[in-house]
Computed example of a mutant assay.
Amino acid sequence: MPEVDTHPLDTARRLAESGDLDGAATIFTALAADPAEPDRAQAAVGLAVVLQERGDVAGARAAARTALVTGHPEFAAQAACLLARSFEREDLPDQARAAWQAALGVGNPAYLPLAHMALARLAEGRQEAEEALRAALATAHPEIASHAAQGLAELLMEEGEAGEAAEVLLEALSVAEVADVSRLRVLLGIAHLELACAEFAGAVEEGGEAETGALAIELLARTLPLRGRDEDAEQVWRYGLDSPDERLAEDVRLRLNRGA
């Protein structure tokens, strides 16, 4: 039985899979060079991959750009990602950022989470990183939203924005089938500890009756070590013990000795 004719694109793919990169490149090149070829974008991506495997970085980038300018929702996005990764491998962050932005510009939802996370990784400043992480979280991709929330929450807590960090983590935990739930919950607990420390410290600063003040001092002093702030905890105890309010100082002394 005679063999059924196959599309050159399929032939090129089979050649590439069998290791005949030169043969595949020849076919992909011809298809990618024809503006009227309906599979031009796909062929250009195939050519970019083959040339990359052959070590022809410049040729691979040229082929990827050919696919990118077609605006094809799938293969233009793939081409932008290929370009971006190629630039990242050579430590060319400006070009990589531009390529990831191009991936966003194609508008294919499947590539948005990856592009936003890459832009967060390549961000030139904290604000730019936060914006990219928020955009990645907003995609609600189970894995990428989790990573974005973790990175964003850590940045926010470094800035003293524990409440906002908690909101970010809760948003991530609401994503269907979100990855790394245990890590998200640990970070949420840490954010709550930071909030608790701020509230306890506020209570100490406001003063008030001795029993409440001593309780706030104890809670703050016992919570701070959970955040690795042992020296701060010692200062809080000392603040209470040295208080001119004798009732407060005695209550703090009792609380300190009770936990010894």
Rank of each mutant, 00 (worst) to 15 (best):
P2L: 12
E3S: 10
V4I: 14
V4L: 15
T6R: 12
L9M: 15
A12V: 10
R13W: 08
L15K: 10
A16Q: 12
E17W: 11
S18C: 01
S18Y: 01
A25I: 04
A32V: 11
A32L: 10
D34F: 07
A36N: 04
A36W: 01
R40G: 07
Q42E: 15
A43I: 03
A43S: 13
V45L: 11
V50Y: 04
Q52C: 06
E53S: 02
E53Q: 09
G55E: 04
G55P: 03
D56M: 06
D56Y: 12
A58Q: 12
A58M: 05
G59R: 01
G59D: 05
A60R: 04
A60Q: 00
A60S: 14
A64K: 01
A64T: 03
A64I: 04
L68V: 13
V69P: 01
T70K: 08
T70A: 07
T70F: 05
H72Y: 04
P73W: 06
E74F: 09
E74V: 15
F75A: 05
A76T: 07
Q78K: 14
Q78C: 09
L83K: 11
F87I: 10
E88D: 07
E88P: 01
E88L: 05
E88W: 04
P93C: 06
D94C: 00
R97G: 02
A98L: 13
W100L: 09
A103I: 04
L104A: 08
G105R: 10
P109C: 09
L112K: 15
A115P: 02
H116T: 07
A118M: 14
R121H: 14
A123E: 10
E124V: 14
G125L: 03
G125P: 01
E128G: 07
A129Q: 15
A129N: 07
A129I: 00
E130Y: 02
R134N: 02
R134V: 01
L137T: 05
L137W: 13
T139R: 08
I144V: 14
S146T: 10
A148D: 03
A148T: 03
A149Q: 10
A149N: 11
G151P: 00
A153G: 03
L155I: 05
L155C: 03
E159G: 12
G160R: 08
E164F: 08
A166R: 06
A166Y: 03
V168N: 06
V168F: 01
L169A: 05
E177K: 06
A179S: 12
S182M: 07
R183E: 13
R185Q: 15
L187V: 09
H192C: 02
L193H: 00
A196H: 11
A198Y: 03
F200T: 05
A201H: 10
A203V: 06
V204R: 06
G207F: 06
G207V: 07
G207Q: 12
A210G: 06
E211D: 12
T212K: 12
A214H: 10
E218P: 00
L219V: 02
L220K: 08
L226Y: 12
R229H: 11
W237N: 03
G240P: 00
L241R: 12
S243M: 01
E246G: 06
E246L: 10
L248R: 09
V252Q: 02
L256G: 01
L256W: 11
L256S: 06
